[in-house]
Design a protein around this nucleic acid. Structure first.
Lengths: 179, 179
DNA sequence: ATCAGCATGTAAGGCGTTACATGATTCA
DNA sequence: TGAATCATGTAACGCCTTACATGCTGAT
């Protein structure tokens, strides 16, 4: 597997639960995962092709009744192995790029109102995201006995906790800037 | 300026305070900025060359007394303009890639202890980063009257608030996973 | 009929990292 | 003398996004 193509692991992770098409994978990534990882068709399809070549996934027979061809992929034993090795690998890369903080840091080059406006924009986005996260949370906490739901739940509460911290920070920052 | 090369703005932001060499810029980025943005020599030097070409920055005369050549850059009026336009632009891209959350999300493919270990690793890193942030904070809060320091201070408290939220989440997550 | 959604894929191009090449100075 | 730091730059390579190409199905 390519050294740094994390999209491979996202796909393997998804396929470890169920067989999926590239299109399905994209939809899954655009859901809850989107809060901490992104992926486009332009990376998903080539990844699937490459991983088929290295035996991490395999194509299933086309089971679509008419309509356009539909390729569902299944994870192989080798694929499961690769996924587990990654989970056990203690090296992680959390790569955070906050353009909002960059603008804040250099806010001195403009009027304070610009910074205040940028904080408002950030806050709006955070509030909207939080709404979505709350919905995920309430639907997940009903079935925490399900092992997988517990993991999903934890990623959602991670989002909620940090986003709520963002909101508190916004209020404090606004106060300081208006003083 | 290139459409999506944010490193240009980081450099312009830094140069809006003082004239710097590429090497200096790298050091600044590796400081407090590193918590929300990264940059390597391989992106900094080409960016400087490109921005000189488009008149956003200009080379100063070599003022090094002997030793290796040393190129200090100065931001031009056009550069200031570009920086301000970016600050006023309401579109922002906060691109967060948490490999830790990815591993958590797919934790079901391995033993729970692996997930617990991954949370430990995350927590260790967060605690270490927090120590650094606390130092920045205490040195900055002494001079909040300085306009720029106020902005730096706000980015640091952003980091502290979110990192503290991370730590609280770690404790909760551990409890749930050990139940 | 037309538009949204389903479905797969490629091509171009941008951004960025890593590693390498080069060489001076300073300090132990 | 050797290592660390200062200092600039290039080259290779990888990853990813955007846009494009193609075409079916189902609902309005």
């Amino acid at each position: 597997m390519a050294k740094d193509r994390k999209i491979d692991l996202v796909i393997l992770g998804l396929l470890s639960h169920e067989d999926l098409t590239g299109y399905d994978i994209k939809k899954r990534i655009d859901g809850a995962i989107n809060f901490f990882w992104k992926g486009s068709f332009g990376s998903i399809y080539p990844s699937l092709t490459a991983m088929e070549g290295s035996g991490l996934v395999q194509r299933l027979k086309d089971d679509s009744c008419g309509g356009r061809e539909k390729i569902r992929y299944h994870i192989t034993k080798k694929g499961i192995e690769a996924l587990r090795n990654w989970l056990k690998d203690e090296q992680v890369c959390n790569d955070l790029k906050y353009e909002t903080l960059l603008k804040l840091y250099f806010g001195g080059a403009e009027d304070r109102n610009i910074t205040l406006r940028n904080i408002d924009i950030f806050e709006e986005k955070v509030k909207a995201d939080l709404e979505v996260l709350y919905v995920y949370k309430s639907s997940l906490e009903k079935e925490l006995d399900n092992e997988d739901h517990l993991y999903y739940y934890l990623t959602v509460t991670f989002g909620i906790d940090t986003y709520e911290a963002y909101l508190k920070w916004c209020a404090k920052a606004r106060k300081l800037l208006k003083r």
